Amino acid sequence: MTKAIVINETGGPEVMTWTDVTVGDPGEGQARVRNTAIGLNFIDVYFRQGIFPLPSMPGILGAEAAGVVEAVGEGVDYLNVGDRVVYSAGFGSYSEERLIAADRLIRIPDGIDDVQAAGSFSKGTTAEFLLLRAWPHNVEKGGKILVQAAAGGVGSILCQWATHLGAEVIGTVGSAAKAEIAKANGCSHVINYSEENFVERVKEITDGAGVPVVFDAVGKDTFEGSLDCLSPRGFLINFGTASGPPPMVDPTQLMLKGSLYVTRASLLHYNAARSDLQASADALFDVMLSGGVKVDVANTYALKDAAQAHKDLATRKLTGSTVLLP
């Protein structure tokens, strides 16, 4: 039998159980994958809590993993048994084996191991679309941008990638230890918002001009301040709610603050088409292989201990990427 982390109801980490499940043969357009490394993401907590609904109960959490193709179904002619693949799609990655739509699987290139792939794929493709597609401008050499939670999973990759492209990155963090991580990620300026007013510091760093874009995964606690850090016609790109959902947006206030733009961006929409998914993965793998982005898989847990990993993630004890090992 295959083991998986199953929930029968939403709630705290205690609803996660280590359970036997049955994995059948792949149907048309599917593949069966033996997971070798499973990515932990904050959105997994949202689904466990019921903030976002799972399609059915009981359910298996998790969307991201790397593994090996064990079998393919009819109509799948672009994958072979034995291929190393990575994915971030649907539900069910908290399992030793699973079935998945084959068109969501991306081959892992030589030079990147399974743990690196699982620890970077959803975070790295998120950083790709945020930096290169969600913001409708190119990163300018020397241009200043603000990244909230610069020591987090996406933030760590986003800061490195933006620095690699020549940006001057201002990163915010919540502790002195995370400030050191943000510096290592290439941030030119690091603001510890538990000790400093980040809006005032951004205005100081930019000589009062503000920044053209803020990437914000924190949500409620930083949202209003992020708006106040923007220059006229600036973009606030929210992509997470670690501190809770942000407040409702009053369009008149956006006008009064400088004709600002706000979006809540999702990887689900930006990489819905396989062509976009493959292009995003290619860009990520290229920048990793070039050394422009280094993935720090700082934490590993046994898959059966996923509940403890969720507890540590929710209390912000974890930095960088975290991987569950079957």
Rank of each mutant, 00 (worst) to 15 (best):
V214L: 10
F129T: 02
G111F: 11
V169P: 14
M288L: 15
V81Y: 10
L165W: 00
G155T: 03
A167R: 07
V45P: 12
G166D: 02
V76S: 05
S88Q: 04
A134K: 09
A89E: 03
T17M: 08
Q278R: 13
I205R: 04
I106L: 14
G29S: 00
M1A: 11
S56M: 14
K144C: 08
E74D: 14
D77A: 12
I108E: 03
P246M: 05
G174N: 07
I157Y: 04
A314Y: 11
S122Y: 00
N271Y: 01
D20A: 11
C159E: 05
A151T: 03
Y261D: 01
Y261H: 15
L260Q: 08
D221G: 06
S266F: 15
A307M: 09
T300Q: 15
R274T: 13
L99I: 14
G11W: 00
N238M: 10
R264V: 03
V72G: 13
V213F: 06
P232E: 02
G12H: 01
P26K: 02
A217H: 04
A37N: 04
V214S: 11
V295M: 01
V115R: 12
E140W: 00
A4P: 15
A279W: 07
V211G: 01
E224W: 00
N238H: 08
G124A: 12
F47L: 02
G82R: 07
G208P: 09
E9A: 14
R274G: 03
D250A: 13
A63E: 10
G244V: 11
T22F: 04
R98L: 06
V199W: 06
K220G: 05
K183I: 06
D83Q: 01
R98A: 14
A242D: 11
E64K: 05
W161Q: 04
S95V: 04
K3R: 13
T10Q: 06
M255G: 14
I108K: 05
R98G: 03
A66D: 07
G82H: 04
Y193P: 01
R316D: 09
A162L: 10
A307F: 06
V6E: 03
I157H: 02
E224R: 13
Q148I: 13
S231T: 11
T263K: 15
A209H: 14
A281H: 12
H269S: 05
F223G: 08
V147H: 08
D221N: 10
